[in-house]
Every structure is written in C-alpha cells, then in structure tokens.
C-alpha cells in the first residue's frame, strides 16, 4: 500500500506517496477512509465532486481530507475511490455509497484533520503528502 500510519502520543498521522501528485492525493484520501472503515467493503454507486480553495499545497491536503471526513461523518457517504480531476484549483471526484450499517462496519473515529506538520512535496521522483489527525 502506498501509504503508512505515523505513530503519535495522542493521535495518528498518515503519509501517502505516488509517482504523480494525483496518485499521492488519491492514496492519502483512501488512507484516511481506511482508518474509519474498510474501503474494500464499499462499492462505488455514486460520485461526489469536491472543490478545494486553499492557497498552499499542504492546506489543500488538509482541506480536502476535512471535506472527505465531513462526507463520511456528516453525510454518511463512504468513499471507495478517488480521482483528481485538476490540481489548480484542486477538484476531486470521489466514488462510493451511502453508509449501510448492516454492510459497513466502522473501525475508527477521526475528529478532525489538523495542520500540524502537514506537508505535500516532491522528494526525488516521488510526491509525498502527510497530515496528522485528531482522533
């Protein structure tokens, strides 16, 4: 899996990477979702568009993940797949389905996506995105 969870005393971080910006973004979104439920249990039945207006790269990641968290927690919409449509402005299409408690088991809670040590940069040939979550 092109992402890993980072240990932290009170909370948890996630770092994802890819050969392109788009891939790293897609992976970090799925890494977030996989903390809350198993994305393998979700089917893509409908799509939602997310537009992020942040000015910095790190801010884009924090805001995008915050909007995905809202979709999950506020609209009970579980994502299964993520596609970056454009980077400037950041437009992301997510595919998934509404939460069905008899099919989807929740495995974790995330309160918020924070700015602490949030980053999105290129290292060598790899793009890396990182955030810490309040859980």
């Amino acid at each position: 899996m092109p992402f890993r969870y980072l240990e932290h005393t009170a909370d948890i971080g996630i770092e994802a990477w890819g050969e392109s910006k788009e891939q790293a973004i897609e992976e970090i979104c799925l890494a977030l979702a996989n903390l809350i439920y198993d994305t393998e249990e979700v089917k893509t039945r409908e799509f939602r568009e997310i537009i992020v207006d942040s000015r910095t790269n790190a801010g884009k990641i924090v805001d995008l993940l915050s909007k995905i968290l809202y979709l999950i927690d506020g609209e009970d919409f579980l994502i299964r797949e993520v596609k970056v449509d454009s980077f400037k402005p950041l437009i992301v299409i997510v595919g998934g389905e509404p939460l069905n408690p008899s099919l989807h088991k929740m495995k974790g809670i995330v309160k918020a996506v924070t700015h602490y040590e949030a980053s999105f940069r290129k290292k060598g040939n790899t793009y890396r995105a990182r955030v810490y979550l309040d859980i």
Partner: peptide, 15 residues
C-alpha cells in the same frame, strides 16, 4: 462531530 467541525471551520477562517 458538531464541535469538531466548528473547530475545523474556524481554524481555517482564523488562519
């Protein structure tokens, strides 16, 4: 979630 979202919203605004 209501409180968590209020904090998220206003950290962005205040930044």
């Amino acid at each position: 979630g209501l409180g968590h979202q209020v904090a998220t919203d206003y950290i962005k605004i205040m930044e």
